[in-house]
Amino acid sequence: MTTPAKILIVDDTPHNVKLLADLLAVKGYAVLTASSGAQALEKVETEAPDLVLLDVVMPAMSGYEVCRKIRGNPATAVLPVVMVTALDPGQERVKGIEAGADDFLSKPINQQELLARVRSLLRIKELHDELAEWNRTLEQRVAAQVAQLERLDRLKRFFSPQLAELIVSGDAEDPLKSHRREVTVVFLDLRGFTSFAETSEPEEVMGVLREYHAEMGRLILEHEGTLERFTGDGMMIFFNDPVLLPDAPERAVRMAVAMRQRVDELLARWKKRGYDLDFGVGIAQGYATIGAIGFEGRLDYGAIGTVTNLAARLCGEAQPRQILISQRVYGGVEDSVEVEDLGGLTLKGFSKPVPAFNVLRLRR
């Protein structure tokens, strides 16, 4: 239930005060009264009315003087004031405007006109109060948004943009808390990188990694994957967490094919420099436990489970430029890709042969 607007009636004639007070009270307004200018100013300061109905002719202090004092106080500079008088309206209206009044009513007062003017001025005051509150908190909100952007920028150095935005917004359940979810995991690395690193200068190695990471990173973001870790030339990416994706297996495969195409361009440049490198990928789908891994001040967002081991093993088994996918991934993308069935592969850590497929190309 909203609080009724408070209206201060200022008149040295009790009969006039009662007439206005009864009329406004019946309409649901909270009524305050004052019989002099000094008492009116005191009520304005202590009661904070929303509107003042101010008689012009009063002993000691006229309504015009009261209005000027109200306008001279920054706290009440925009408080609606309606001057009420039985004097010549033409002359008094000019004096009232010069004193800072918002409106003018002549006695005897027309009740409908009074109520209409009161409603109009209270609407204006409400809008002004909203604007004043908005301005009052603007600096605070801007500072909070700047701090949020700075925090988001720092988090993006360690987490994927999707995860960083979830952490900062607080719109979802704590994404860093351990939870189970079905994900599609992608492992990739450069073939021949170890021997390349052993026989090349550190500057050359870092140059290759910078080019490689930059190109792969763009594709990870483009396909909304979550980068779990860099390990030199190796990367682990998963899909469907923290952002849920209905087509996670297809996104993973499309990303891997795009990566292979991009790496082909890099390989052509690297070959001219005498670098003998290549590229392989493994993709698996299954449930994993996901959450923050690390310690205060340095956290990673990681996934643990058989699915991550399977993706890593498929990547290790992949020949140069091969993208090996598990049976479950193939079931989710078979209409979108052309593959080579490799049958069952014997992989370390798995007691039975694991069906695997080599992605040849995407179907148009």
Rank of each mutant, 00 (worst) to 15 (best):
L32A: 10
K352W: 05
A172G: 13
A268E: 12
S169P: 08
H128I: 09
P59D: 11
K348P: 01
F238S: 06
L245K: 14
A75Q: 12
S62I: 09
A143W: 06
K6S: 14
K272E: 14
P249M: 03
Q148W: 02
V329R: 01
V263Q: 07
L190S: 02
R93D: 09
D278W: 01
L122H: 08
V186L: 13
F239V: 09
E47R: 10
V253F: 00
D11Q: 08
Y212N: 08
I290T: 10
T194G: 00
W270Y: 05
W134H: 13
K6P: 09
V84Y: 01
A21S: 15
G90K: 12
E250L: 14
V10D: 08
A303K: 07
Q261K: 13
P74D: 05
V94E: 15
E126S: 15
R218Q: 13
H223R: 12
V57M: 12
H128K: 10
T199L: 02
L345T: 02
A248E: 11
G90T: 15
E338T: 13
L324K: 00
A101R: 02
Q319S: 08
I9M: 05
V253Y: 00
S62W: 07
V205S: 00
M235H: 05
D129S: 07
R254Y: 04
Q285K: 13
N135L: 09
H15Y: 13
L244N: 11
A318G: 01
A147Y: 07
K272L: 13
E250A: 14
L299F: 15
N16T: 09
R262E: 15
A38H: 11
A25P: 10
E265Q: 12
D50W: 01
Q285C: 11
R154F: 14
I124P: 04
P89T: 03
D12I: 05
I237E: 03
A143G: 09
V263E: 08
G37Y: 04
R251T: 08
V307E: 08
E47I: 05
P355D: 05
H213A: 11
R229V: 14
L79H: 03
S195E: 07
R269G: 09
K348Q: 04
E228K: 04
V146N: 07
L105R: 04
D335W: 07
E334A: 14
D264H: 11
K107A: 01
G316D: 03
G96R: 02
E130D: 12
